[in-house]
């Protein structure tokens, strides 16, 4: 549906709904923190961003031109390679997967003894991997500054004249 519809407004609505659905899936996979971030940021802020973008650029997409053969070929090739790669991966929910037996017990006991807060995700986010979070903040700041710079310079003249008063 998201692929085929050419009016962008329902596409944006559908991708918001998809985001909410994926948040529900994250809850069922025990990732509650991720789920509410996805619901707030993915379904909320991203949808608002898309809506404001299509209000500035127009909501009707041109019908696709050119052949579909090449994208379909790339897609099936990629899917085949990825599926071949998953054959060696640990099964869903496997407690003995390498990701769970290395480093993870230390994080869990460390949260109990060193950090002392109940939420392990917060303790890793803010303490064990604090530099990652600092980098994330840097990325967000850069993105915000970039958006401001991009949109401020380029307004058409008449809009600048309208909004000159409040800047």
């Amino acid at each position: 549906m998201i692929i085929r519809i050419q009016n962008l407004f329902p596409v944006v609505m559908l991708s918001g709904a998809f985001s909410l659905l994926s948040a529900a899936l994250f809850v069922s996979m025990d990732a509650v923190d991720v789920a509410f971030t996805e619901a707030a940021v993915g379904a909320g802020i991203a949808t608002v961003l898309y809506l404001s973008a299509i209000s500035l650029t127009g909501a009707i997409e041109k019908p696709p031109s050119g052949s579909r053969a090449i994208p379909l070929l790339v897609m099936t090739g990629l899917a085949a390679m990825l599926l071949y790669g998953t054959a060696d991966m640990p099964a869903y929910g496997d407690a003995n997967a390498p990701a769970h037996i290395h480093l993870m017990p230390e994080y869990i006991t460390g949260t109990r003894t060193q950090i002392g807060i109940p939420n392990i995700v917060s303790s890793i986010l803010a303490s064990y991997r604090g530099f990652d979070t600092l980098g994330e903040t840097g990325v967000i700041f850069t993105a915000g500054a970039g958006v401001l710079l991009l949109l401020r310079r380029g307004r058409p003249r008449r809009e600048l004249a309208n909004q000159g008063g409040n800047e």
Partner: peptide, 10 residues
């Protein structure tokens, strides 16, 4: 495993 949760949050 909480580590993927942290990574994906970011």
């Amino acid at each position: 495993n909480p580590l993927p949760h942290v990574l994906i949050l970011t």
